[in-house]
């Protein structure tokens, strides 16, 4: 999906201009802008969850089991989107669920981005047998279907949200490593790197200060993809009972608990899934916009 296309070398001192240019192209893509606004709203909702949620997401109201949303027969405005099998408010659970999904995305992307960059820089910069070994290890990880590998990893580490995040980060990290390595190989022999090298820059400095900033564009695009992918994978693990454990209001886990009601109470099944879909969609829209704005090749056509 993400074509690893290296950006052109920036002329120094044009950061502000670059940002302006980026924003100009990003704004062109209406979907991306909508996605961004939705995402911002989601972040605000997650931060303010305790203030926005009408109920505690874990408290059970044993007198209101499987109450439908307010517009259906039997629904009440006390529970706008109805309740689940043990009488918890679905709206509140969805609002709190946003926290978990965003948290999962951030943690997974951070771990896999940092890990991938370091591994990719080392492989690309040093080359030789180090590169060989690292890339074979990445091949091994990529040979397994990601969800299957994550599933086995979680089984090893024990079910739970933290372990699910670690597992997803491990399986998504090779993409970053490969991208970084490819970009480093592309940049390594360019004049500005040579110049820095001749000027006596240390290896660390060369890797992180000179080369890395010029490989960032494809990494940013991949990071958005991984962000949405992480949310989907975590939800899938939750659905299979290996992710966040009840009563955590994580969306995938909510779906897993709701499965037995598919023919009885549509709202407990439909709403968490819709929340996942819309969130992932917004992030992917943003990702598309980012790619268009950062990828000069597409700009041209």
């Amino acid at each position: 999906m993400a074509d690893a296309t290296a950006t052109n070398t920036p002329a120094p001192g044009t950061r502000r201009q670059m940002l302006a240019e980026f924003w100009f192209y990003f704004r062109e893509n209406r979907g991306a802008v909508y996605g961004m606004w939705f995402f911002i709203a989601l972040v605000i909702m997650a931060i303010l969850a305790p203030l926005l949620a009408p109920h505690d997401p874990i408290i059970q109201d044993r007198s209101a089991l499987l109450v439908p949303p307010f517009w259906e027969d039997g629904g009440t405005t006390n529970y706008l989107l109805g309740t689940d099998a043990v009488g918890r408010d679905i709206l509140s659970r969805l609002i709190f669920g946003a926290r978990y999904s965003l948290f999962i995305g951030i943690v997974v992307v951070t771990i896999s981005l940092v890990g991938g960059i370091v591994i990719g820089l080392v492989a690309g910069f040093f080359g030789g047998w180090i590169d060989m070994v690292i890339m074979r290890v990445m091949d091994v990880i990529l040979a397994f279907p990601s969800l299957l590998l994550a599933l086995v990893l979680v089984a090893v580490l024990g079910p739970g949200l933290t372990n699910a995040m670690i597992a997803i980060a491990i399986v998504s990290q090779p993409h970053f490593a490969r991208l970084t390595r490819a970009a480093v190989l592309g940049e390594k022999n360019r004049e500005y790197v040579m110049a820095a090298r001749v000027a006596g820059a240390g290896k660390m400095r060369l890797m992180f200060r000179t080369i890395l900033p010029n490989c960032l564009a494809p990494l940013i695009v991949q990071a958005t993809l991984s962000f949405s992918g992480a949310i989907l994978d975590a939800a899938a693990l939750g659905f299979l009972g290996m992710g966040a454990q009840p009563p955590t209001p994580e969306w995938g886990t909510m779906l897993a608990e709701a499965r037995e009601f598919i023919l009885r109470a549509w709202w407990v099944v439909t709403l968490p899934g819709l929340a996942i879909l819309v969130t992932v969609l917004a992030i992917n829209l943003m990702g598309d916009g980012l790619r268009d704005a950062l990828d000069p090749k597409l700009k041209r056509s």
Binding site: G31, L232, L255, P272, G273, L277, I283, N284
Partner: peptide, 13 residues
């Protein structure tokens, strides 16, 4: 893009 963002276990349900 919607399809690409789909949690397929939910879609199946």
């Amino acid at each position: 893009l919607v399809g690409y963002s789909m949690p397929i276990f939910w879609w199946g349900l």
